[in-house]
Write a protein that binds this DNA or RNA. Sequence first.
RNA 1: CGGGGCGUAGCGCAGCCUGGUAGCGCGCAUGGUUCGGGACCAUGAGGUCGGAGGUUCAAAUCCUCUCGCCCCGACCA
Length: 539
Amino acid sequence: MRLSRAFLPTLKEVPADAQVASHIFLVRAGLMRRLAAGIYTFLPLGWRVLHNIEAIIRDEMNRAGAQEVLMPAAIPAELWQESGRWEKYGPELLRFSDRKGAKFCFGPTHEEVIVDLVRHDLKSYRDLPQNLYQIQSKFRDEMRPRAGLLRGREFIMKDAYSFDVSVSAAEASYRGMYAAYERIFSRAGLAFRVVEADTGAIGGSQSHEFQVLAESGEDTLVACDGCDYAANVEQAEVVAAAPLKSADGPLEKVATPGKKTIDEVAAFFGEEPARLIKTLIYMADGKAVAILCRGDRAVNEVAVKKLVGATELYLATDAQVTEATGAASGFAGPVGLAIPVYADRELEGTTGMIAGANETDFHLTGVKLARDAEVLAYAPVRMAEAGDLCPRCEKGHFEVLRGIEVGHVFLLGTRYSEPMKCTFLDEEGAQQPMVMGCYGIGITRIMAAAIEQNHDDDGIIWPLAIAPFAVEIVGLGADAEVASAAEELYAELLARGIEVLLDDRDERPGAKLKDADLIGIPLRVVIGKRSLKEGQLEV
RNA sequence: CGGGGCGUAGCGCAGCCUGGUAGCGCGCAUGGUUCGGGACCAUGAGGUCGGAGGUUCAAAUCCUCUCGCCCCGACCA
C-alpha cells in the first residue's frame, strides 16, 4: 500500500478523551475513530490488524476441530425469556423492538441462539461432539465504557460452544480449547498468563481466563512463585495465617469518639490494624449480613457471594448499616449483632481483638469471638495478597500481577441445555441433556492489549504476526534515485507476497520517520541519498 | 446511578470570573524556499461557541433545563 493514497490519518496530538496507551495510539496512528462512547469505526490499518488476529484464531479453531458459523446479532426476546436471562441480564442487554412491537436484543453472547440451533438439528449421540464458533460484533451496554477498546460497548468477539455426551467428554473438549487458546495467544506474540477464574453468572464447574500481562489491566491476578498456580484474585484460594492472640482479658467498652476508620482506631489504641476486627455489613439479596475479617485485610466479594449463597451482593449504605447495627457507620462489630455473622478463617481462635461496639463512638477491646459473638461460619473470605503462602504447593508465595482478560473458557455443564431442552438420545435410547462448554476471545481487545504490551513513547511496536504490514519502506528526501530505489524494492517485496507499506508521500524526513515510529511496522527500510550512494539501506 | 471534570474551526486549546467586533497552535488549500527526526515565508478557506429556553439595549460569557463526552466508584464474559 502506498501511504500517499492511503486513508491513514495520523495525529500529532493526544486525543482529549484518551488516557491509556492503547487508546491514544489506536487513534493517533490512524487505526480507529470514535463514533459514540465505547463504539468505534476501524480504519484500514486497524482492520488489517483485526484480520490478522482473526486469521490466527480461525486457523487454530479449525485445527482444533471447531467449525465456523455466523449467528444473527438481533435475537428475539422469546429465546432469552426461555433461558431466564431476559429478566436476569439487566440493563447491560441492549433491547429494542421491531415495527410490529416484537422485542429483540442485540446479542451480548450467544448461548441461547446456539442451543436453539443445536437442539433442532442434533438428536443422537452419533452427532456429538460438536464445536461451533463465530466471529461477530457483540454489544454490551456497559455502565461505564472506558480505555478505548479495553472496555467498549460494541466489540468483536470470537465465541465458541461445545456439545458433548458426557462430562468427561466435555472436559476433553475443554482441554482442547484450552490448548488452542494457548497457541492462539502465543502466535499473536502476547505475554499472557492462564489463571483460574470465577465462573460468575455464566456458571459451570471450571473456568480459566487468559490474561495479557499489562500494568493498565483491569484485573488483578495472583501467581505462585514456586509452582504454576495462578488465579484471578476474585477466585484465588487463601491460606489463613495463625490466629492472633494476646492477653485473654475481659470485654471492655472504650469511648472512641469520631474514630471510624481502621487506621484511626488502630492509631487510637496504638495497635496494628491486624489486631482489629473489620466488620462489613453487606446486603445479600436484600438482607443484611455481617462479614468479619482482620483489619489489615480486604474482603473478597466473590467469595462472600458464594459463602452466603447470594446472587446480588453489595455493601450496605450508611442508613442500612445503622438499621442493622444500631450505630453509625464505622462502629459496627460482631458482639451482640442480630444479623447473620460470617468471619474470615483467620479470625478463628483470636483473642484480645478490637471491634466496633455497635454503639456510636464506642469500640470494644478484649474481643474473643468464640466467647463474645455468634459466628455462623469461619470461611476464607479475605482477598489474596502479595506474599501470601500458596495454597497449592504450600512453599511458594503469591506475587500480584495486572492483566487484561482476552480469553475465557468455561465448562458449562447442562446449565443451558437442561432448561432449554437441548437433548440427545444415548445408546440405550434414553434422553439426556448435552454437556456444554463455551469459549470466548475478545478480538478488538487483543488489538488493544497487544499495544499496551508493545509500545514506547513514540508509538506502537507490533508483533510481526498481527502487524498491519510486515515491512515499511521510507524513502527520504526529494531525490529521484532514492524514490526509484524505494519503488524498486516495493515492487520486489510485493512480488514476493510480502505485505509492505511504502511511504511515498512528499513529506520531510522528520515527518515520515515520526509517523513510522507511531505506526510501528516491525521491519523498516530507510533509504537515504547518502547511504544509497554507498550501496546501503538501513533496516 | 453517586462523585468530579469538560463541550468554542478537522485536532489540541485560550477567551467566560468582570456581558460589548470569536482568537491561538497544529492540520488543510495556493505559491515559493527547504529535505536524515514532526521545516520556513507569504496568502487563504474553515466556527448557528453542544442544544433549548430565559435575563439584557447586547450573551461564547449570567440563569434554568437538556444532550453528549472523559475520569473515579458501584458493577461486569
